[in-house]
Design a binder for these strands. Structure first.
Lengths: 339, 339
DNA sequence: CTGAAAGCGCTTACAG
DNA sequence: CTGAAAGCGCTTACAG
């Protein structure tokens, strides 16, 4: 490992001051071109490594941005992360990632860590039950927060997400338009604003079409493929014999379709199924999934942009940015067959 | 934001020195219990936030561990990450995550960043073409590296991965045992050791069974669902009419099965398909996927453990740790039907 | 265009 | 058991 090379090593070896070396390495116009070139060359040949901790201690800007979501393994979040990453990368920010698995405590630890590291900002999809105080902790200590996919009430923080009630109504109306009357809703929870909004959107769409709402047609809970797969049994044994299912998301829909196929029925023909999110794999599922585009890439890109703008000193004006979902019709839905 | 609260703020407010406060907050036995309690209470009520940059500048330990893989959206890596995360979390390490998308340059930037932040270590699944020098850069600057899933030649670094040749032979032999003789290999690339090992394992298994190896039965390339889905067309139009396919991984296998189903054939009955990795979703695919367990969770856990042990000062002895894969037989493979 | 010096907020010998 | 002082490696006024 040898001796550690620092600014002063370069300065001494060249008979200059650390101030000059520091400025030169950051391309300050204050330094003569020839001096700068000599310094950079020397830094390279000595294998100098810039110490960001020291710099950041002095400047109190770290170049670190934290991102925390429910679960990065979930493709919905992964697609948001991908967009955030490409936006932050372009601006040479380092990002620290974490899952909170809906543990408010784990999320709080993450914020705490970020504060300790002097993070410049945080983008989060808040854990269920996040108190406004946790966001205030960040903001009050100079760590601006941006929310994605979920809202938190009681504090004004820029939030980017899809319009859930509108989106789920698109899916429900699509099925109604195909002649379905007994439509189940699979997955989701009342503990999140998203969950409440989506259920409400489904209920409203049915009411508007004069279809009676039957709470037994709802299977709350599932949010994963596994969950959807397991829900198929309950779904298929409902006494109301639903002919269609509005699913919480694409994962649940794909799992449900697998479960339906496992039971010998043909999803998309015998039972119509809609997803939500339009994940990359929705298009290659069998059958290809009819779903609602929810703008993950948009959400991620806009959230990152908003944070960078904020760090650059501009003022964000709007606090809730709703993305308008769009219908994507494929093969998992078909007209209701009168028996 | 008010005034920033630091050690000296606490010290002054209590009429103590910063040394005592520093020791107390870290539970040093040197400090009297009553003093410690007073200090901790005061820190809490003032909303003190520990400045890790300052501490780490002094101690040159940062508590940061970097993890870089091809793509965190890929469930194979996600499963490894999940295991790494739970192991590091338990040891209160912060981890910084990055994708390299097989760009050696992006990977090098990440290592550079980690060095600048004073990272304690790095766990990586090296990008295709990673030169030994890039790992040496890390090691020489006090950043120990651990490899997962892929090897790099020319440097001795602890490496954890599955035994690929052995694993793919398991799958190939399984199909041979079911009577299949025309077996295609879908996906993978010769540019990685993994790719070469798996192809070799397939070739060797065929030879051992006296089956002629036909290079036209190989479709190199695909590593994703989308890739497997698209490969189905080529696969189904092969003049040799293969009755089975050994796939690079579960994603390719699931994509291929979807493509086969789309063409009107029944995967698992008309065509036998094997995957590789035993991802969580393999079991709920339709049909449930016959695959090779590749120990992602093991790999992640062991790699994290190895790094933590190294940081704690112990010497790792072995450099390549091969996990023995195991066969998982489900419904996507069935006996060859004589025509 | 370049340098001397202070300071960011901690921790660590060293003294008492 | 507690304190005074140096130092980690940068950057930033300030001087010249």
């Amino acid at each position: 490992m040898g001796q550690k090379v620092k600014l002063s090593t370069i300065a001494e070896s060249l008979g200059l001051s650390t101030a000059t070396v520091s400025l030169a390495l950051r391309d300050s116009p204050l330094v003569a071109d020839s001096t700068r070139d000599r310094i950079k060359e020397q830094a390279r040949s000595l294998g100098y490594i810039y110490n960001r901790r020291a710099a950041s201690l002095r400047t109190s800007r770290s170049g670190i941005i934290g991102v925390v979501v429910h679960d990065i393994m979930n493709p919905f979040y992964a697609e948001i992360l991908r967009a955030i990453e490409s936006e932050l990368d372009r601006n040479r920010q380092t990002f620290i990632l974490s899952n909170h698995y809906d543990s408010v405590e784990k999320q709080r630890n993450f914020i705490e860590t970020l504060l300790q590291l002097g993070g410049d900002g945080v983008i989060m999809s808040p854990a269920i039950g996040t108190p406004a105080a946790d966001l205030a902790l960040a903001e009050d200590n100079g760590l601006p927060a941006i929310l994605v996919a979920r809202s938190v009430t009681g504090i004004d923080v820029p939030t980017f997400r899809g319009d859930d009630a509108y989106g789920i109504a698109l899916a429900t109306n699509h099925l109604i338009g195909l002649g379905h009357r007994t439509i189940a809703m699979i997955g989701g929870t009342d503990q999140t604003s998203t969950g409440r909004d989506r259920y409400q959107g489904y209920v409203d769409a049915l009411r508007k079409a004069q279809i009676e709402v039957d709470s037994e047609l709802r299977i709350p809970g599932p949010r994963t493929k596994q969950g959807g797969f397991e829900a198929a049994v309950t779904f298929l044994s409902m006494r109301q014999k639903p002919t269609a299912a509005v699913c919480w998301n694409d994962l649940v829909a794909i799992g449900l379709m697998n479960g339906i196929a496992r039971a010998g029925l043909i999803p998309g023909k015998d039972i119509s199924v809609t997803g939500y999110d339009d994940l990359e794999e929705a298009a290659i599922a069998t059958p290809a999934l009819t779903t609602v585009w929810n703008g993950q890439a948009e959400v991620g890109r806009m959230a990152a942009r908003a944070l960078l703008d904020k760090l650059a000193g501009s003022h964000a004006e709007d606090y809730l940015h709703l993305i308008k979902p769009e219908m994507r019709i494929r093969q998992s839905t078909s007209p209701h067959k009168a028996i």
